[in-house]
Design a binder for these strands. Structure first.
Length: 346
DNA sequence: AACTCGGGGCC
DNA sequence: GGCCCAGAGTT
């Protein structure tokens, strides 16, 4: 098929030199694919390098504790990926004797491995004919074929997967999968692609119909909800503070943060005092940021205040301020720690 | 089928 | 501000 041949030819000339392209080792391929989920190459690359340096094989990763894995993942987001990565490493090391599943169907059973990642590993490592469908593939196919079915609808997922399966080069599935994703990332970009140098321009339906700007079509998601966070940044006479581990189901599961009081709106000091209700050990309370820090997540906007609370004593669960950098924290907390000079306070 | 889960980069 | 990124899991 001409489309497929043009893509693989384009790829042979334009491919970027990326570290996970120089190996067929399923551990490295798997690790890179988990890191790159919903993450641009530029952002994921340093994390990939850090993980292979810290955990050269699946056994080192399996023998790490989860907190160390989360710490190395800190700042990358979607932390369930790190927890599933660690769980799957233990499964492979201890239940499968260190040997990765070698086909799409069995790869799909691994935690954190869905349709895309199973197809990627199966094709890159074992040359299985399994077509990948990621954000790049949706964009390239919807534009070239002029498909208006929303890519995040059930129907759309079916249509694009079937088309990708039909187009894949059965003689060289790995190269085809790499080629179409690279083409989407480098040439057929989301905004303002340079169509004048596109090798597929003659038969591209979106270009012909002036629809590059509207394809692919995606069903809009809801607007993020506003939440109001009040963090309690304790500073004791003994140079200690408190970090707590987030439990339960929500964001940042198993990461650490300062004790949190949530309010229904942004509050001032008098309202905070009512909410916090300090005891006799509290010597002084001040507000770190007069203007709320708005931390934007996909589905939540976190309007955040950091309250500095000087105390004479803290409970058993406190830790030395000099130690807090060892805990995995959300970037919101990390940014505060960098900006707030604890040394001036103690 | 809709919702949840991060953080960075681009326009 | 809105959209996107080598998506997966849960409800």
């Amino acid at each position: 098929m001409q489309f497929t041949k043009t893509l693989t030819n384009w790829y042979s000339v334009n491919k970027r030199d990326l570290p996970w392209r120089n190996t067929n080792n399923p551990y490295y391929i798997w690790l890179s694919e988990i890191i790159l989920q919903q993450t641009q190459v530029k952002q994921g690359l340093p994390y990939y390098e850090a993980f292979i340096a810290q955990y050269p094989t699946v056994y080192e990763l399996a023998n790490a504790n989860e907190e160390a894995v989360l710490k190395l993942w800190q700042g990358l987001g979607y932390y369930s990926r790190a927890r599933n990565l660690h769980a799957t490493a233990k499964h492979i090391a201890f239940n499968l004797e260190g040997v990765f599943p070698d086909n799409y169907k069995d790869l799909l059973l691994l935690k954190g491995v869905g349709d895309y990642t199973a197809s990627a590993i199966a094709s890159f490592c074992y040359n299985e004919v399994a077509a990948v469908v990621d954000g790049n593939v949706y964009r390239v196919l919807s534009r070239f074929y002029g498909i208006h079915t929303p890519i995040n609808s059930t129907e759309g997922k079916k249509v694009f997967k079937a088309l990708a399966d039909d187009l894949i080069d059965t003689k060289n599935p790995a190269d085809y999968n790499q080629a179409i994703m690279e083409f989407g990332a480098v040439q057929c970009k989301p905004s303002s692609p340079d169509c004048s140098v596109c090798p597929l321009i003659e038969n591209c339906m979106a270009y012909r119909n002036n629809e590059i700007g509207i394809l692919p079509i995606k069903i809009k998601n809801n607007k993020p909800k506003n939440k109001y966070f009040n963090y309690l940044v304790y500073v004791s006479d003994t140079d200690e503070t408190i970090l707590e581990q987030r439990r339960g189901k929500g964001i940042w599961q198993n990461l650490y943060q300062f004790p949190l009081l949530e309010s229904k709106k942004s509050i001032e000091e008098s309202e905070f005092m009512e909410l916090f209700n300090p005891d006799e050990t509290v010597a002084e309370i001040s507000l770190f940021n007069e203007v709320d820090i708005i931390h934007k997540l996909s589905h939540q906007h976190l309007h955040t205040k950091f309250w500095i609370i000087k105390t004479t004593s803290l409970p058993e669960s406190s830790m030395l301020i000099s130690e807090i950098e060892n805990y995995a924290v959300p970037i919101l907390i990390k940014n505060f720690m960098d900006a707030f000079n604890f040394q001036n306070e103690i």
